[in-house]
Computed example of a mutant assay.
Amino acid sequence: MNSTIGIERTSAYFPDGVETAEQLAEKTGIPEQIIIEKFGLFKKHVAGKEMHASDLAIEAARPILTKIDPLAIDVIIYFGSPHKDYYVWSAAAKIQHELGAKNAYAFEMMNVSSCFPIALKVAKDMIIADESIENILLVGGCKESQIVDYDNPRSRFMFNFADGGAAALVTRKSRQSEILNSAIITDGSFYHDVLVPAGGSQNFPSEETVKNKQHYIDVTDPSDMKARLDDVSIKNFERVIKEAIDKSGLKMKDVQVLLPLHTKRSMFEELLKIVGLQEENAIYLDHHGHMSALDPCIGLHFAEKKGKLKRNNIVLAVSAGTGYTWAATAIKWKGW
């Protein structure tokens, strides 16, 4: 294994639109202080009608391509939200074209919110397996604020869904970091709990599906899902975290920085307990919200910008996505 395979650069992009906790309180009927204190959200970014997931991804990638020739990118992997500009359509192709990465082939990975730690594993494994690959651009966009129905009591708790873009350059000879090992768990018994009811082959779009607002995200039975999820979620987070650390030849005490997806505060605090860290050693996106698979990538970008990453720090990207999949990837920060 080439031990220098790592993340060389990261970038993030956020649209200008903002919704505050006060505005979300008006939409949801949940008190502003509860949104801030329990759900961990002061505000989130919201894209306008002119920007879509692909556009957010493209804008996130542009700063990276001021540091590397677009023609030096060998592969582009879109790892962002499945709620894209169009259905049955590849955002990766548009991204490749708009960025001028003519030598790259492009494809998409989709495992909803769990996808960034998995995308790091896939990129690393591809570089190990194929000597011709030097640079892989991971890029994602999210406009999931658009699919929250605030009139639906089953799903309006997902008001933290937000918009943005994220990108990471994974390279064969990284001076910045080293991607270590990953762990992934899927419990497919949750496959039908969270979905957009209409738009696919099960429930093709019609006048009725639009009238019934079935093109927004929904939870089929919230109390049942919560009961089953509460029993396994923390256990599975702990398992993937420990396995990723163990497979990397490390101990839990070696972890210095945690990069989780945005969750309610109680879950965030549980994750901190698992790794034995204080909040100042993590990135909690309480001013940005949850952006599908983008959160840990954005967290890494923020951690670098805020000076939280020191030479030889062990960083842990942790996420989970409906379906239900839990994933973690360990990263060794090298610095310049």
Results as ranks from 00 to 15, higher is better:
Ser248Ile: 08
Leu285Pro: 04
Ala101Ile: 03
Ala57Cys: 14
Asp130Met: 08
Met51Asn: 02
Asn212Ile: 05
Leu277Ile: 13
Asn313Tyr: 15
Glu22Leu: 15
His83Met: 04
Ile298Ser: 05
Ala129Asn: 05
Leu195Arg: 02
Val148His: 03
Ala293Val: 09
Ala91Leu: 01
Trp326Ser: 07
Glu238Tyr: 11
Val255Arg: 06
Gly276Ser: 13
Lys226Ile: 12
Trp89Met: 00
Ala167Leu: 03
His290Pro: 08
His290Tyr: 11
Met110Arg: 11
Tyr105Lys: 10
Lys273Glu: 15
Leu56Met: 07
Asn160Glu: 08
Thr322Ala: 14
Met109Pro: 01
Glu32Ile: 12
Glu37Ile: 12
Pro15Phe: 02
Trp333Met: 08
Ile76Cys: 01
Cys115Leu: 09
His288Pro: 01
Gly289Thr: 04
Ala92Ser: 15
Ile133His: 05
Ser155Leu: 03
Lys94Met: 03
Val255Pro: 03
Phe116Glu: 01
His301Lys: 10
Val210Gly: 03
Ala317Val: 14
Ile274Cys: 10
Asn212Glu: 10
Val170Glu: 02
Pro31Ile: 14
Lys235Ser: 08
Leu229Arg: 10
Ala162Tyr: 02
Asp231Ser: 12
Ser155Ala: 15
Ser81Cys: 07
Ile30Arg: 07
Asp246Phe: 10
Leu300Asp: 02
Met126Tyr: 11
